[in-house]
């Protein structure tokens, strides 16, 4: 099997789900690195060079808002879901449930083709 091909298929598969991953964790404000660790703890690996640009994009799309916290020793940028982000997140999770149910019936259990 071509290793590069599998790599690119995997990253394509992951890409769509990352937005949902990120939105799910930003009900309360977090800074970038904390978010990475947070996701890692739950078994989701995301590279910083993917996450940081993604956060900016989601902010531009008004799903997230950000604020620099300068009160601590290190200034950090905190991201949080907006109200609009909340409603989009709601829709996405519903769709995700449907999708994963469907996927499970396709490839999970005994009905999947092996």
């Amino acid at each position: 099997m071509e290793k590069d091909l599998v790599e690119s298929l995997l990253s394509e598969l992951r890409r769509g789900t990352l937005i949902l991953c990120v939105l799910s964790q930003l009900g309360e404000a977090k800074y970038g690195y904390a978010l990475i660790q947070n996701l890692e703890d739950k078994g989701i690996d995301i590279d910083a060079n993917t996450l940081y640009p993604l956060l900016r994009r989601l902010e531009k799309q008004e799903l997230l808002c950000s604020e620099w916290n300068t009160q601590e020793a290190k200034p950090r940028k905190y991201y949080k879901r907006t109200v609009y982000g909340d409603s989009v997140y709601q829709i996405l999770t519903e769709q995700w449930s449907k999708l994963s149910e469907g996927m499970n019936s396709l490839i999970g259990g005994n009905s999947g083709e092996r």
Binding site: R56, K74, P75, K77
Partner: peptide, 17 residues
């Protein structure tokens, strides 16, 4: 126009890492 902000972000990230 994004440079200043990204510079700060990256500095923060590398420091955190």
């Amino acid at each position: 126009k994004q440079r200043k902000e990204i510079k700060l972000e990256l500095a923060e990230l590398i420091e955190d890492m």
